[in-house]
Write a protein that binds this DNA or RNA. Structure first.
Lengths: 198, 198
DNA sequence: CGGTGTCGATACCAACCGGTATCGAGTGAA
DNA sequence: TTCACTCGATACCGGTTGGTATCGACACCG
């Protein structure tokens, strides 16, 4: 009785299992506090499988964060692409951004930990810098496009406004993590409104 | 020949030596990547001295960060207390804040790492929340005092403005860490100006 | 001066880390 | 059916970790 001839999982499947498991454990424990054994155990595999699919711990961490940053970037740009009518939609955009801070809270934590890592590792730093520059560029384009659409003269250069929005996203995530009540739901939108009205 | 009868260092002296050493090593390597041996070696002592003065690694980390947060808080409030003439001084305040981001870059890194720790440890979290609330309150008071002095109607509630300033401080520190050129020197001041003029 | 208690150096521990070598089971092509 | 090869489990390595037990040297007080 050979049964349905259970196939051996493909390499891509195993790799994905490991990545998903690592993502989950990172979210739960943080990057620095997570060992290869933790990841392998979460995936129902062993260290051997990890080393067979990745060059080592650093390679795995890098791969995961790169993937997450790309996903997050796409999401952020689509949010900004919908910023069609400027005056009232800034409130909506602010609300959506703050909502993203809550729903993606664990990701914000991971990004900031990764940032701390990048500050001490030149290789990681250059990778993060490249991604971040691309994100800034995308946000800048979305902002200037929305401004042109409405014929508004922004009091700040679009690329500077983009930096401020990104900074506020991270900064408010920190404050909200410390004390959610300190960051009311409308705050991000209110600030945005002040920043786009000349 | 007894010499100048070299005194044994007082307990407070040893404790301070350890704290200062740990601060230096934390700044260099980060909290998570620093072992008790590293700290003891930096202080010219051994682990025994550390365990004799602190309950353990966690106790030491907590003590140091508490102390740093207090120092930073005092510095931040004095900066805001000097915010006498609102219109032009916002630029100065912004410049000083951004300068603080650079000169205290390592501290920002440490705070964000500590924040990540607090997000996973309820005890650490409550300690940080308390300190942070006090800092918010102090900044709020400074802002409303300056506003009253000039008879300006702030478009944002002082406590909300305080949160935004704190968030921008951390957020811009992150962006500046990734790419210093992305955060021009006048940006913080420009944003501040938009936030205080109704 | 002499006893008493404190402080910190030393040695040591079990646990765990990232990484490597090995080897058997399963796979796909010949 | 066979055979070369891939993949992942297992065992193992040297090194490091936070934490503990011990003990000698020193300061302080009576």
């Amino acid at each position: 009785m050979t049964g349905p001839q259970r196939r051996r999982p493909s390499r891509a499947e195993t790799r994905r299992r490991i990545i998903d498991a690592a993502t989950a454990v990172f979210a739960r424990q943080g990057i620095a506090a997570t060992s290869l054994n933790d990841i392998a155990a979460e995936a129902g595999l062993t260290k051997g499988a990890v080393y067979s699919n990745f060059a080592g711990r650093d390679d795995l961490v890098l791969t995961i964060m790169e993937e997450h940053i790309v996903v997050r970037m796409e999401r952020a740009t689509t949010v900004f692409a919908e910023l069609a009518d400027l005056d009232e939609a800034t409130a909506e955009a602010g609300a959506r951004l703050l909502e993203g801070i809550d729903s993606d809270a664990t990701w914000h934590r991971l990004l900031l930990e990764y940032w701390g890592l990048a500050m001490r590792n030149p290789t990681v730093h250059s990778g993060l810098a490249e991604r971040r520059a691309r994100l800034r560029k995308a946000v800048t384009a979305a902002i200037s496009k929305a401004a042109a659409l409405h014929g508004v003269d922004l009091p700040l250069a679009p690329e500077h406004l983009a930096v401020v929005v990104l900074a506020l996203s991270n900064g408010l995530a920190v404050e909200r993590g410390v004390d959610p009540a300190a960051v009311p739901p409308t705050l991000f939108g209110d600030v945005l409104k002040l920043l786009v009205t000349p």
